[in-house]
Computed example of a mutant assay.
Amino acid sequence: MTEESPSRPRRFAPLDPERREKDGNDGPLLKGIVFDVDGTLCEPQNYMFAEMRASLNIEKPTDILDHVYSLPASDQDAAMEKIRTIERNAMRSQKPQVGLVELMEYLDSRGIRKGICTRNFDTPVNHLLTTFLPRHTFHPIVTREFRPPKPSPAGILHIAKQWSVADNWATDDGGQSLIMVGDSIDDMTAGYQAGAATVLLVNEVNAHLATHEHTDLCVRRLDDLIPILEKGFVGQIGWREENADTRAQAEAVLEKQ
């Protein structure tokens, strides 16, 4: 975790400059958003994980990457290739999340940097970007080659550092000027420990994470973030300052389980 965790609930000033001036909002400015890939930029392909565990002859709750890295060095390449083969096959059926393009166009219009922090390897990530977001730039892109992977905050902090250098930020505040958007506990924990605000893209499988202490806010589709960012981000879920509408979104999903 960063040396000084930011106060909760997390807040950012409205991205709408007129609203920011009118309201006199003195909240911190959002400097960038980091996205997970599978289950976040594209629809979940959770069946992959069962296939990976079967190919490696392991069961839950063993972490797939932790298992591979625990193998003798001479066996790691073969094990990793089994995982990559499954991911290559799955990428052919990738489907973009609802509101994906709309959110990215909005972020570009407001000059908000976009990065990626994923446990996938680069081929399916590049396939998704070139297929569904060919006109949009994400940088840096942190993939499986970067270690340690999520739930470590290292990848998000690496992105924050790259952005601070590029933008000549006066101080390096770690991830405190960022939002991490994802769909898993690894995403929420990595963001929280980096000091970033966290947004859960909630679905029937991960709805229980809506009330997790590492989750600041949940949305049901990516473009739900647009009005939130325009008006000023305020984290609610998990910090006892729940907004009724946001809480209702999570509970609506929970009721479907």
Rank of each mutant, 00 (worst) to 15 (best):
M1Y: 00
M1K: 00
S5P: 13
P6L: 04
P6M: 00
R8G: 05
P9F: 08
R11P: 02
F12G: 04
F12C: 11
F12I: 07
A13I: 08
P14N: 08
P14W: 08
E18M: 06
E18L: 11
E21H: 03
G24Y: 03
D26A: 12
L29H: 13
L29N: 13
L30R: 05
C42I: 11
P44H: 09
M48V: 11
M48K: 12
M52D: 00
A54M: 05
A54C: 02
S55F: 00
N57G: 12
K60E: 11
T62E: 14
D63I: 00
I64S: 05
I64M: 03
D66E: 15
H67K: 05
Y69I: 07
S70P: 14
L71M: 09
P72C: 11
A73S: 14
S74V: 14
Q76I: 09
Q76R: 12
M80W: 09
E81W: 03
I83C: 04
I86G: 04
I86L: 13
I86F: 10
E87I: 03
N89V: 09
A90R: 10
S93K: 14
Q94L: 15
K95R: 15
Q97M: 14
V98E: 15
V101G: 08
L103Q: 07
M104A: 13
Y106I: 07
Y106D: 07
D108R: 07
D108N: 14
G111M: 03
G111S: 06
G111E: 01
I112R: 04
R113I: 09
G115S: 15
C117D: 10
T118V: 07
N120S: 04
N120D: 04
T123I: 12
P124I: 10
P124L: 06
H127L: 04
L128T: 11
T130Q: 14
P134A: 12
H136C: 09
H136T: 15
T137A: 05
H139S: 11
V142A: 00
R144T: 03
P149Y: 06
P149D: 00
S152A: 11
G155Y: 09
G155S: 06
I156V: 08
K161P: 00
W163F: 12
N168W: 03
W169K: 09
S177L: 05
L178G: 05
G182W: 06
D183P: 06
D187W: 02
A196F: 02
T198F: 01
V199K: 01
V199H: 03
L200S: 00
V205N: 01
V205Q: 11
A210G: 14
T211C: 02
V219P: 01
R220N: 10
R220M: 07
R220C: 11
D223T: 15
I226S: 03
L229S: 10
E230L: 05
G232D: 03
F233L: 12
F233S: 07
G238L: 05
W239Y: 14
E241V: 12
A244W: 02
T246G: 09
T246W: 11
R247N: 12
Q249D: 15
